[in-house]
Design a protein around this nucleic acid. Structure first.
Lengths: 210, 210
DNA sequence: TCGAATTTGTTCAATTGATCACAATAATTA
DNA sequence: TAATTATTGTGATCAATTGAACAAATTCGA
């Protein structure tokens, strides 16, 4: 299986390529894409080669061909349906984000422990956790976004897995414990920011300009 | 300079260690921390060695010592002050998040192009972009969170840099172009989710259980 | 049509990063 | 106290990933 870095780079390429296409280009050179994505040209060529995308020598690569290959890699034929656990600030921000729809990802339902929130109206239905199994099973859901407070994250995570969830995007600042047939990816906003702060300070110290 | 992976791991360790401490532990073995963080025990020992944290042979490591070393590594003496650009869904979710405060990061001001939003009351003041330079200079701000829509991301980014910002945490689905004395880290929610979906499917195919 | 210029595709080398393995050391038990 | 067990700390090895370099191919211009 390919490394997660490879997979991540593909999404970076896709972002730049859709942009370049919008700007009016039909072809790219590896150098051009390198400038856009800050990956080296030779690495890009290697990645495209792994995707079995052929370029024309001296002619560059056809953008649509690359985009199709990337989408095929992610299996973007069918629409992916997922659920959301936690309707706090982050949860709300997520369901209001239109980008998921654009990429054929649909959040079909949300869960929250708080009955007051269950009663409020959102763009998607909000259920109590007890409803989780029913929905996961009926709609054959594999993936969940976990956006609950830290103190309940592990417990909600366990419930999700119990219901059949096999992939989790976790926003809670917790290192979840899961069986190894479950895939977890963490988005830790504080950590991300702390890293930016750290590396910014480092650049000031060691950077070429200072 | 150390790799970003190392820096990221330290924050993972910190998360588990504060948890373990809360649970009542004073010491950890590298194996234990390995189980919590899903990094190998030997890698953890190497990392701690790089941090110049000494353990006791057969006695493990003192949790507080590690935590102090990690915090020292990130220079957590002084409070870090940053700004936020964009008061949409993500921006609002960020200022409502209490975790930043807990880690001594203070968001001192926010900026938004929309005058209606500027007039609303939030926990921090919201200014028009024209005020940016004044605040960045007066308060000596280095780092900004960029949470504006994709179409204006590059332009706002340019303005931030123009005002003196040197580190950016970017939430817009755009590959920003910045001079190389500026550090950028991207949080791409759609990409993160797409990766989870992809790897979850892969696990179903190739995983040990299936 | 021929040559020059340019870009891909791929091999090779080198660096980096992680794991392995084990010596050193400390604690525990008999 | 001596033997045994458990854990750190690190040198050596192994693997993976990236970058460099160059041959092959295509286009363009003269």
């Amino acid at each position: 299986m390919y490394s997660t870095d490879f997979t991540k780079r593909l999404l970076t390429y896709r972002l730049s390529l859709t942009h370049l296409k919008k700007v009016g280009l039909n072809d790219v050179y590896s150098h051009l894409l390198a400038g856009e994505t800050s990956h080296s040209a030779s690495l890009i060529r290697k990645d495209l080669s792994r995707l079995q995308v052929k370029g024309k020598r001296r002619g560059g690569y056809d953008i649509d061909t690359i985009l199709q290959a990337i989408n095929a890699y992610f299996g973007n034929k069918e629409r992916d349906r997922i659920i959301l656990a936690g309707m706090g600030n982050i949860g709300k921000a997520i369901i209001q984000n239109k980008d998921f729809e654009k990429h054929n990802i649909q959040i079909i339902a949300s869960f929250d422990l708080n009955p007051a929130i269950q009663r409020k109206k959102f763009s998607i239905p909000v259920f109590p956790m007890e409803k989780c199994r029913e929905i996961v099973v009926n709609y054959k859901i594999d993936v969940a976004i976990l956006a609950v407070p830290a103190f309940s994250a592990q417990s909600v995570c366990d419930q999700l897995i119990q219901c059949g969830i096999r992939g989790i995007l976790n926003f809670a600042p917790v290192n979840l414990k899961v069986p190894d047939n479950v895939y977890v990816s963490n988005v830790r906003l504080v950590d991300e920011l702390q890293q930016v702060i750290y590396h910014t300070k480092q650049k000031r110290k060691h950077g070429e300009y200072s």
